[in-house]
Simulated assay, not measured.
Amino acid sequence: MAQDREKPEPLGMFLRSEDSPPFGPTEIVAALLALVWVVAVIAYALISPASDGGGLLGLVMTLLVVFLPLALIWAAVTTLRSVRVLRAEAARLQATVDAMRNAYLLSQQTQAAIKPVVEQKLDEVAGVLATFQTRRDPGLTVPSADRKAALVPPHRGAQDEQPALALGTPAEELRPPVSVADAIRALNFPENPDDREGFRALRAALEDRNTAKLIRAAQDVLTLLSQEGIYMDDLRPDRARPELWRRFAQGERGRTIAALGGIRDRSSLALTAARMREDTVFRDAAHHFLRSFDKTFQEFEKVASDADLAELADTRTARAFMLFGRVTGIFD
């Protein structure tokens, strides 16, 4: 009994019903008819007067009269049995389709119920790591071009020259600005669970409000694109000169900067365009990502060197920008 409970219940197609008995109602009726016919033939042969039989033709006609009805009876029985088997197979097939449909709907409902909870937990973990991270990177004490701020800090007015009280100082003002190298590494996201440097840079970037907005927007669109089987690592965009990136940051749009849209993969472009037409959530996430990228990149370009711009253009976030830029017509 315990072993039977442990076995998973198979779908209808693989659940073979017990074989029907060899003699059902149809077979019994057919057997009775055949018996009645044989008795009738024997009675006729005994009662009817003897005759010469009409030779070979008479013998053939006698055999046909005796055995043809029997053959027709059992042919009808075989046909009925085949119809019964086909009906049973159709019922099992329908049960299989219903079971697969119910399993698919259940999996979709379960995934829809679990996904918001998982995303909320991930956001909470990221927030905790960003808030309570106290270990300072020893590399920050060494002057380096890679440690320059990725975003230009806002200019303080004359009224802000006086020192603020410790209890009234915002937490953002106490943190050092995220470096260019960390911002670029964070926008490319960690390569794998063992990429400690990538996670360190991601935590540092999440502490900056503007960079964190872009990272979360990029994470949303990359997740949505993966549902269509589109992954940034599979795309090989054409490289654009840093001057074009600077012209884009300064507000230039249209064909003069068309080289920035270096994604040429027709399948990815078609799938993305179709999803944007059909899915309002996908379309809103894409436009939010483009606005966040535009706003953050304008500040990033002011402190980034040409080498920094070239490295940024090779990140997963920049590739997603190229893809959505081509689809939305930014470079037209």
Rank of each mutant, 00 (worst) to 15 (best):
G254T: 05
N188T: 00
L224E: 04
P8W: 07
P170S: 05
A126E: 10
F300Q: 06
G157C: 06
A186F: 08
L174Y: 00
D160L: 01
V221H: 05
Q94V: 04
D146R: 14
S17L: 10
P49L: 07
R253S: 01
P237A: 12
L15W: 12
A320Q: 01
A249S: 15
L32N: 08
P49M: 04
E119L: 06
D98T: 05
D4F: 14
V60W: 09
R147W: 02
Q159T: 09
G53N: 03
E197C: 05
A274Y: 06
R247F: 01
S267V: 02
A259Y: 00
A212N: 00
D98M: 08
R275A: 15
V117D: 02
S17M: 03
V85F: 12
E18L: 05
P21T: 10
R81P: 00
A307T: 09
S17E: 12
R185V: 03
R236F: 02
R81C: 09
D332F: 11
T328G: 06
A217E: 06
L235C: 02
E278R: 09
L224Q: 13
L86P: 03
Q162D: 06
A113N: 11
A71Y: 10
L151N: 02
D238C: 03
F132M: 10
L167H: 11
R291A: 15
L57T: 13
Q298A: 15
V118I: 14
E252Y: 09
L56D: 11
A130V: 08
R255Y: 03
D332T: 07
K7R: 15
V125W: 10
M232H: 02
I257P: 02
S48W: 05
R136P: 04
R236G: 04
W74A: 12
L206D: 10
K121C: 10
D265Y: 10
L80G: 06
P138N: 12
E243A: 15
A204D: 03
R185N: 05
L290R: 11
V29K: 08
A164R: 12
R216A: 10
L140F: 03
D238T: 01
Y44G: 15
G157V: 08
L64S: 14
I215W: 06
L140I: 01
L151G: 01
L222P: 01
L59C: 03
E278V: 11
A126D: 05
A274E: 13
L271Y: 12
Y44K: 10
R87F: 06
V66Q: 12
S107A: 15
A259M: 06
L174W: 00
V117Y: 11
A2H: 12
A313P: 02
G53D: 04
V221I: 11
T169A: 12
V178S: 00
